[in-house]
Amino acid sequence: MSTTELTREDLATVSPAWWAAGLLTVVLLAVTFAVEPGLFIDQAIGGLVYGMVLVLVTLGLSLILGLMGIVNFAHGAFFMLGAYISYSVVVTLGLPFWAALILAPLIVGVVGVVLEITVLRYLYDSDPIVSLLATFGLTMMIEEVIRAYWGTAPLEISRPSVLTRGTDLGVTTVPTYRLFLVGVAVITIAAVYLLISRTDFGLTIRAGVQDGEMTEFVGVNLPIRFTAMFFLGAALAGFAGVLYSAETGMRTTMGETFVILAFVVVVVGGIGSLFGSVVSGILIGVSAYLTPVVLSALAEVTNQPWLALQIRNLVPYLVMILILLYRPRGLFGEEGFLE
């Protein structure tokens, strides 16, 4: 997994069209800030926070896809499974939320390991489409297990009481729980980054994907490391599920909603780039919050009320369409990877 950084050469190769787009964005944001300063700040900060939540949700998917080349559609199902297990831990077993935060990811990780050994192991050499289809089938199974065991009615748990109120940031008040999520996301991203770029574990996996035989030849037990990697990816999804659902509750459609968003984030950021996923998560979070404000400010300035479109939920897809058409490998993706 590369952790591409912007270098001066990169900037020099940026085309005039991108410069123009950047400039236009800055102008639009400035106009919006001038028209609605209060709302602009609220939404910018809210969007930043939401973007970090998106990054957290995407992390496991980004790892599995980037390192192992598996298009893991079951990521959303793992995410949802983590959420529902946390419900059982907190409500049925009566344990504190913090226990769920540790137990649920472990259980989801184990489920991931079982699926890796029984199904995905046979797909490493196939076309990415095949792994997409197989994990699509697995998603169906996991979702049905959830419906059978927990039912289809929305559920919820109560959060630790410290986190139910708001934190006043001076310019705006943000739910304390979301700030907590941002903190957790930052720590998790840093830990994952260190694991894959600074440890022997991450390097051998990367080597194994590129040349499995050679890596095994030098004495690395690849199957076990691949399994461990999949454990990590699934556990991260479960972890995000626990954290996310503590605020919003559990719903049987949350997996499908988030797997699509997570794919959007990974594809926009560039497959194979952890750094790309972080940037794109924030980009998508902020633009989803800010675009409607920008449009309504624009409508006010130009006196064209039809411009004030409520397109918040469309923004992630628009961003993806634009990026993929003009830069198919995503913002920081490696050239030729899955292209």
């Binding site: 609605e36 209060g38 609220d42 939404q43 809210g46 929305p154 979301r178 919003t248 409607p292 918040r312």
Partner: peptide, 17 residues
């Protein structure tokens, strides 16, 4: 606001301003 939705905070921000 879309129904069902998870995140009401952008809409609440709009109301707040």
């Amino acid at each position: 606001t879309p129904f069902p939705a998870d995140d009401y905070s952008p809409y609440l921000n709009e109301a707040d301003n």
